[in-house]
Structures are given as structure tokens and as C-alpha cells.
Design a protein around this nucleic acid. Structure first.
Length: 379
DNA sequence: AAAATCTCCAACCGCACCCGT
DNA sequence: CACGGGTGCGGTTGGAGATTT
């Protein structure tokens, strides 16, 4: 039994607002102020749902809103905050005067996300696709099975190369991203001699948490919407996804957001030296609201159980989902972090947990030699 | 010029939380 | 403590306008 609708949807107008309707809202708010939106339609003479009125006001009519395009500084701030706290649009919007969460969300989805993808950055994890791909390949052994070349060939036959030359940096793009996806793949995977394609990457849904949550979504995975999360700083589960529950990996140590943020050279500089400007403590203070408190937990005190660094976390997630892959010995992180920009932006380290998994992988191979046959297929 | 496709964003939806009763 | 109305939030959709074919 769900919650009853806030109004009779069949009898209220929906869709785009007219100037007349806007004027009624503005007139009502100027006379009565904001409050009890469910009664606003009736009092203002509108045939709209109260929720719709509130949305129209907060997202469009509020006098303090900016309607011009986002400035490069705003773009950079959104990216940094998204890396730090994920798709907490309302929190991000609070740091952008005159912008609503809807503005920020739309701008992210239409511009910034695509821009990052073009530059070879996974917009969910903020890691280079090449690193993700390399990790995945090295752990699951894709490159050993022959499927890599097969996939590359098929994808390259279907898509022209010019797709990969689109990552031309503009002056509005943040300076912290320098390399195209193609460059990164060449750099991180010397064995890959051809440009790759989105189709090819799409076959390995490492950044699609809906289809296959191979990699931990550091933000949405925090049980921030859970009532209990606001009262505890330690998760009882290593990770939990609201919509896609992933199998658990036994935790061996803890990871804190504050350490993660402060270890990030880009974010920590802002965080430490301009704390007043960002002022997460104030913004995320538990005294403000439960949402703030939950986000505070995410940022400052929420402990995410992990086997080491955040990179290990991502890595372990992929390991956990690739039990039967053909693992290579190296985890690929150390040797693949030779790009100065990304080495500065993304730190990594080896993991005994990963080694353990790889040992087990090798053990499986020794016990089941057919697995090493490139022609072996599960289907 | 027309049709097809793409981009963008306003608006909607459903869920969860807050808070008064 | 339970309930229910109000609100906040993030994800998604629909359609208008722009662009390409």
C-alpha cells in the first residue's frame, strides 16, 4: 500500500507553465510568503498540484536564481563536489549561489558528464576509463581470453575512428583533465594498439551501476537515505546500493571520507585552504537537518569498510564480481599510474586482498586448465 | 524544404524524512 | 509510539527547439 497522491492528478493541469500562471504564483508569494504549498493552488487560483507550484517557484521563479549559463568556475566546482559527495545535487547547489539542484543536475547530465566521458573519465567514479578498464582486464583476464581482440575488432568495424578525436579540450574545461580516452588507453594498455570505442567499453559495464555494479559507487552506495545512517558513523555493511544490492565483500579495514578527501590533491587544497568557502562542517552540520547529517557522515565520519585505499575498493569490487575470470598476475594499478596528471589526481596502492583473489584465480586455473583456453566460453 | 535526429531542461514521479498531533 | 500531511531530494521523462541529413 503506497502513499496516496498529494492531489487528484486527473483534475490538475500539468506540463509547461504559462506566464499567467507564473504571475499568479509570484503574486501569491509576494502577498503571503512561502508555506503550505498544498493550499497555494486554491488560494492563488491555480489548477495545479501544490507540489508542482512549489517546484515552479523553487526551480524557476525564485528571485535569487541565476538564469545565465554556468561559468567555468562553477563547472569546476561542480566536478570537484561531485567527485567528493556524488550526486547530492542539493548540497552541491548550496555552494553555487543562484543555482538550484535541478539546474546543477541538468547541467551535469547534459554537459559535464559527457565532457568527462569524452576526456576518458568515468563520471561516476571520476577515474580514467583506461584505469578502470585496465583493472578490469587484468583481474578478469579479458586480455587473455582473446575476447579483447574480438571485441575490439567488432567494435572498430562498426564505428569510425573520428569518434575518438572528439575529446578536444576547450577553455571551459577544467585544467585537471588533459588526456583523451584514446591517449589513456594507449598509455595504460600498451597491448592495445588500436583506438577503442564506446561500444567496446559498453560491453564491459564497469561504469553502469544499474546493469552491473562492478564498481562501488562511492556516493549512492552510502546508505544515506537510511534513517539509521544519520545516527551512526559506521556502516554495518561494507556497501549497500539502494537499487542494486551487490554481494558483500568481507571488510578488513576502514576507509573514511575525510581521509579520502584530504588525500586528494585537487580537493584537499580547496578543502583545507578555503574551508570557509566550502564550509562542509557548517553545510553538513547535523543540527541543520537529517539530510545534512547524513551527508556529514558521508564526508567526515562515515566509515566505509574497505581493504585499503579507495582504488582498492573499486578494484576489490571488480574482483568480487569476476571470480571466474582469467586473472593476470599484476593488478595493473601501480604500472598504470604513469600519467602524471592522473597520478596526481588519482592515487592507488596494492592490496593483499586482491593478491589473495588472484592467488585463488591462479589456483582455479591450475585445477581447471580448460579455463586457459582462449576459445573457452561460458555459453 | 522536410524529415530525422539530437540536445537541453522544465517538470514529473516516487521515495524518504520531518514534524505536529 | 503511530499516524499522516508537508517537504526535500534524486532519478527520469517529455517535448520544444536546434541541428543534421
Amino acid at each position: 500500500m503506497g502513499r496516496p497522491p498529494c492531489c487528484d492528478k486527473s483534475n490538475v493541469k500539468r506540463g509547461l507553465w504559462t506566464p499567467e500562471e507564473d504571475a499568479k504564483i509570484l503574486a501569491y508569494v509576494s502577498n503571503h510568503g512561502i508555506g503550505n504549498w498544498t493550499s497555494v493552488p486554491k488560494k492563488a487560483g491555480l489548477n495545479r498540484c501544490g507540489k508542482s507550484c512549489r517546484l515552479r517557484w523553487t526551480n524557476y521563479l525564485r528571485p535569487d536564481l541565476k538564469h545565465e549559463r554556468f561559468a567555468p568556475e562553477e563547472e569546476e566546482l561542480i566536478i570537484k563536489l561531485h567527485k567528493a559527495i556524488g550526486s547530492r545535487w542539493s548540497l552541491i547547489a548550496k555552494k553555487l549561489p543562484g543555482r538550484t539542484d535541478n539546474d546543477v543536475k541538468n547541467y551535469w547530465n547534459t554537459k559535464l558528464r559527457k565532457m568527462l566521458q569524452k576526456m576518458g573519465i568515468d563520471p561516476v567514479t571520476h577515474k580514467p576509463f583506461s584505469q578502470i578498464f585496465s583493472d578490469f582486464g587484468n583481474i578478469s583476464g579479458i586480455s587473455n581470453t582473446g575476447n579483447l581482440n574480438k571485441s575490439l575488432n567488432s567494435s572498430l568495424m562498426s564505428k569510425p575512428d573520428h569518434q575518438f578525436s572528439s575529446a578536444i579540450l576547450t577553455t571551459t574545461e577544467p585544467s585537471c583533465f588533459k588526456k583523451t580516452m584514446e591517449e589513456q588507453v594507449q598509455e595504460y594498455n600498451p597491448t592495445v594498439t588500436h583506438p577503442t570505442s564506446w561500444d567496446f567499453l559498453a560491453q564491459f559495464p564497469v561504469h553502469d551501476t544499474k546493469q552491473s555494479p562492478l564498481f562501488f559507487n562511492e556516493v549512492s552506495s552510502c546508505p544515506s537515505s537510511s534513517p539509521s545512517s544519520s545516527s551512526t558513523s559506521t556502516f554495518t555493511q561494507p556497501y549497500s546500493c539502494q537499487k542494486s544490492q551487490a554481494p558483500l565483500i568481507t571488510p578488513t579495514c576502514t576507509f573514511t571520507w575525510s581521509e579520502f578527501l584530504l588525500s586528494d590533491p585537487v580537493f584537499s587544497a580547496e578543502f583545507q585552504h578555503q574551508q570557509e568557502q566550502y564550509d562542509f562542517d557548517e553545510m553538513l552540520s547535523p543540527t541543520n537537518s537529517s539530510t545534512m547529517a547524513m551527508a556529514h557522515n558521508d564526508l567526515s565520519s562515515c566509515n566505509i569498510t574497505s581493504t585499503g585505499s579507495d582504488d582498492d575498493w573499486y578494484l576489490n569490487r571488480s574482483v568480487g564480481r569476476s571470480t571466474y575470470g582469467h586473472g593476470t598476475v599484476n593488478n595493473g594499478l601501480e604500472e598504470n599510474n604513469n600519467a602524471a596528471d592522473h597520478a596526481a589526481y588519482y592515487s592507488s596502492s596494492a592490496s593483499s586482498f586482491v593478491d589473495g583473489i588472484l592467488d585463488r584465480d591462479r589456483e582455479l586455473h591450475s585445477q581447471f586448465p580448460p579455463l586457459l583456453d582462449p576459445s573457452f566460453d561460458y555459453y
